[in-house]
Simulated assay, not measured.
Amino acid sequence: MTAPVLPRSARPAAGIRSLPARVAAANPVARLIASAPIVAGLVLTIDPVSAGVALVLELLLMPLTGIGWRRFWKATAIVWVLAPLGAVTILLYGQASGAVYFSWALVHVTEGSVALAIASVLRVLAIALPAIVLFAGVDPTDLADGLGQILRLPQRFVIGALAGLRMLALLGDDWRAITLARRARGLGDRRGPGALLRQCFGLLVLALRRGGLLATAMEARGFGGDVRRTWARPSRFGRIDAALIGVGVVIAAIAVTASVLTGSWRFIGG
């Protein structure tokens, strides 16, 4: 009789005693649930106070995730670049209100558009940063185990999504193989939208073929049957998982309360 294989998040490891290490080993489902209240609180309003408070609290708690600042900046660099770029459109073409700072043709930079652009930047950062940090290094199999055992999602959906996610890593290899094959046939020097579309179509055909073979293989091994399946790696919730979810709720509550008390709350549907 063999012992069950534990998921990485539940395997005891030497030296895991510090709080950052425990948070880093938290259940992936707990990380998913912890980010949900933050997202829910910030999507209801678009004001700089709620997003700014949430962002400050997240940055203060970032060392407790165990990700390390160097890895943090490397993983989130794209967000710090794209968030201000996305706000430029709001700054130039957002709803005009208050004092006018610059106006030319359709471009109107006003007091209201500036405030809206700042709120948008903070909002994107406050939503994206915790999602990236919490899911950095998450094993897809651990996440699938949690979705199936803890959230009780349909097993066919969970296993299928996991299989598809595992196949994503092969798309890069397929793209390089198609490129080499086209070069061998003397088509590698062709450029332009037509050549790109033909190569993308070839990649789609390979993906569909692999998906069909994978579906057949999984069906042959009993996936998707009526018999209740078992899990080789149990996924459980612990105190650190409950604490992580509580931190997400507290951050969202503080951000929303600060926005309401300062009169900055701006319901997005209003």
Rank of each mutant, 00 (worst) to 15 (best):
P130D: 01
W80M: 11
V247E: 08
A10S: 14
A99G: 01
A24P: 08
A128E: 00
Q149W: 09
M218D: 05
E111Q: 07
A24V: 11
G112S: 09
A105P: 00
S235E: 05
V158D: 01
A207N: 09
R190F: 07
D145C: 11
L134V: 04
M167I: 01
L59V: 12
M62F: 09
L170M: 10
A252E: 00
V100F: 00
L106E: 08
L134F: 14
I38E: 03
A131G: 14
G68L: 09
G222S: 06
L42K: 04
R228T: 14
D174Y: 03
G112A: 09
V23S: 05
L57A: 06
P63D: 05
I16E: 08
S120F: 06
T45H: 09
W80H: 14
P48G: 04
D174A: 05
R71S: 15
A163D: 01
I178Y: 00
Y93V: 12
A14S: 10
N27D: 15
D189N: 13
S50C: 12
L85V: 14
L147I: 04
A161N: 14
I178Q: 01
G212Q: 12
A83I: 06
A136H: 12
D47W: 11
A128G: 03
L187P: 06
Q155S: 09
G246P: 13
L203V: 06
A184H: 07
R166L: 01
Q155V: 04
L197Y: 13
Q155E: 08
A169F: 02
L214G: 02
P234N: 03
L162K: 00
A217E: 06
T65C: 03
A13S: 07
A136R: 11
P7W: 01
D226P: 05
L244W: 01
I90Q: 11
G224P: 11
L151I: 08
P154L: 04
S9F: 15
L125E: 02
S35R: 02
R185M: 06
